[in-house]
């Protein structure tokens, strides 16, 4: 069972490695969007550090969206989706490997880069750590919920925009708790409550999103 899961994961990572431009697009988008704000708003440290949590979280959220429409599109076009549907393992299980690969390729680099960008915003040290924690807890949710949107819009023309319309409203809780955690910490309060809620949202989507995605994929191949 794990053998199949690991194979799906390895295949997606290998494909990402051979098409590095896809990873680079996500990262550059995150870096550029989050660097534009200090340039546009001006170098006032007080202003910057107060907008930082929201701006960095929104940038991370949008960066994760860019690659979503490609999550299942290639598999559907070349027939490997059919083969995954006919695999003896449950589809939701294989889908979870694909989502994990998507997070490793598009989510994790953003988490690692975020503290560097945070420095541009004159964020206090503690808040930088909370930013990393909150992104680490929250970005998997973005991939998980995003996968549902990607599966639902599979084969639809102009699916990129449609995914955004479907998925962005569902990202709101993650955004509120994620940015809230960083803001709380920047104001010297405990971020624990926000982080707990963020983890709860993550766990819930971890259980439900692969099932919903698998169901949407089944409908899309009919």
């Amino acid at each position: 069972m794990n053998q199949t899961w690991l194979t799906v994961l390895r295949r997606d990572l290998l494909l990402a490695l051979r098409r590095r431009s896809d990873i680079a697009t996500t990262l550059f988008f995150f870096v550029i969007v989050s660097s534009l704000f200090p340039l546009g708003i001006g170098p006032e440290p007080a202003v910057l550090s107060s907008i930082a949590p929201g701006v960095l979280w929104v940038a991370a959220l949008l960066a994760g969206m860019i690659s979503l429409s490609r999550l299942f599109a290639a598999d559907s076009a070349d027939g490997s989706l059919e083969q995954m549907l006919l695999a003896p393992q449950p589809l939701a299980w294989l889908v979870s490997a694909k989502i994990f690969a998507h997070w490793l390729v598009c989510g994790l680099p953003v988490v690692l880069l975020a503290p560097l960008i945070g420095l541009q915003y004159a964020m206090p040290n503690d808040a930088l750590w909370v930013l990393v924690y909150s992104l680490l807890l929250g970005t998997p949710t973005l991939s998980l919920i995003g996968a549902i949107g990607a599966a639902l819009t599979l084969g639809v023309r102009g699916s990129g925009l449609l995914v955004a319309l479907l998925v962005l409203p569902l990202y709101i809780p993650t955004l509120i708790f994620g940015a809230g955690a960083v803001a709380a910490s920047a104001h010297g309060m405990s971020a624990e409550a926000h982080l707990s809620l963020l983890a709860a949202v993550s766990l819930l989507s971890l259980v439900l999103a692969p099932l919903a995605t698998a169901a949407a994929l089944r409908i899309s191949v009919e």
Binding site: T4, T7, A77, D78, S80, Q83, L86
Partner: peptide, 22 residues
Amino acid sequence: LNGLKDDLTALENLQMGARIAG
């Protein structure tokens, strides 16, 4: 549809395809 990944080699495609089929 062949179910092959363009960026993988023939050998990789065949091996991974078989593994996914269990």
